[in-house]
Design a protein around this nucleic acid. Sequence first.
DNA 1: CCGGCCATGTAATGTGTTACATGATTTA
DNA 2: TAAATCATGTAACACATTACATGGCCGG
Lengths: 177, 177
Amino acid sequence: MARSSQTDAAVLGGLSVQPMSGYALREAIRDVLGHFWSESFGQIYPTLTALEREGFVERSEGDRAGSSTFHITPAGRRRLRELLSQPIQGVPPRNGLLLRLFFGRTLGAEACRELLRDARADAERKLAELDRLLAENAAETGPDAPFMRMTILAGRRSAEAGVAWADECLNLLEELS
Amino acid sequence: MARSSQTDAAVLGGLSVQPMSGYALREAIRDVLGHFWSESFGQIYPTLTALEREGFVERSEGDRAGSSTFHITPAGRRRLRELLSQPIQGVPPRNGLLLRLFFGRTLGAEACRELLRDARADAERKLAELDRLLAENAAETGPDAPFMRMTILAGRRSAEAGVAWADECLNLLEELS
DNA sequence: CCGGCCATGTAATGTGTTACATGATTTA
DNA sequence: TAAATCATGTAACACATTACATGGCCGG
């Protein structure tokens, strides 16, 4: 069946902002939560069906034939609050970059340098993108804006740390040779 | 069967440091790579069997009856180098803390403050632990020590960023009320 | 001699992605 | 009218965790 309470929360949360189709929901999750969350169609549609069966969302005819607009019910809002209050389910750590660096002696110093340069560039790109989002967010005044800001700031701090760390490691490799 | 090339890399990497039992391998992964990697028994044993079949590891009688010591073969070392050179497979982002904060208006400001305080405390604990590891690492002189140092530094930067971010968000919430 | 740790392995289960099948609607 | 996009849904597969089954060994 493929469902976790966190997927339920993300779907209900999305619909709590505004009613939309499953397709639009996926785009919203990718575009708005993309920095810290992801869901695939294979999760979203079965989840919507299950939430509908449980009375947390309802569907009405969409703009196009065969399409539906899903909207959250009052019970769904209560359920969302309940889900968000549950303990955070962390994902087990799996950092492929650090795995490669840990065995850096086997991989070779030059390959490590390249990995670090790539990681640095990725972090810089992310930083620029998040700064853009931050400027956009500063212009918004709605009650959700400060909370969205927090998630952007988290990504920003993480990207900054990534750049500083990559430089630190590249220096460390210089000293080594 | 349950195998990914990254699991193969972690297992071969562990055995490249020294031969050991599957049980010891799991402990080593948990204790040494634990900050950025994890593998369960359900992954390790089938992986060892498969790697043995492929000639990348061999098993000899262990100290105890019924136990085995696994060691990496020359082909296994080549395979490890190959696996580490492959593109990094990232895990899709799933940050439960940020998901909760994003829908912070539904969750409530006080609950958000508590989440942030907890996150800050976690980051501080992690910071202290990593500083301890860093001091241990500074005393080591082996060729692997600098690479291990990089992975510790990554965790440290991330924890520092976590503390600063939590404070930033807590301030943001203060201003809000 | 019993409880706890070392050790191996399998089965059940959960969770998630990707690919596919299908078709409507819009746009170039 | 052909291609791209919107839209829903399912099936197959990949991956990982957890729990369980089994048994040897060691210390108190």
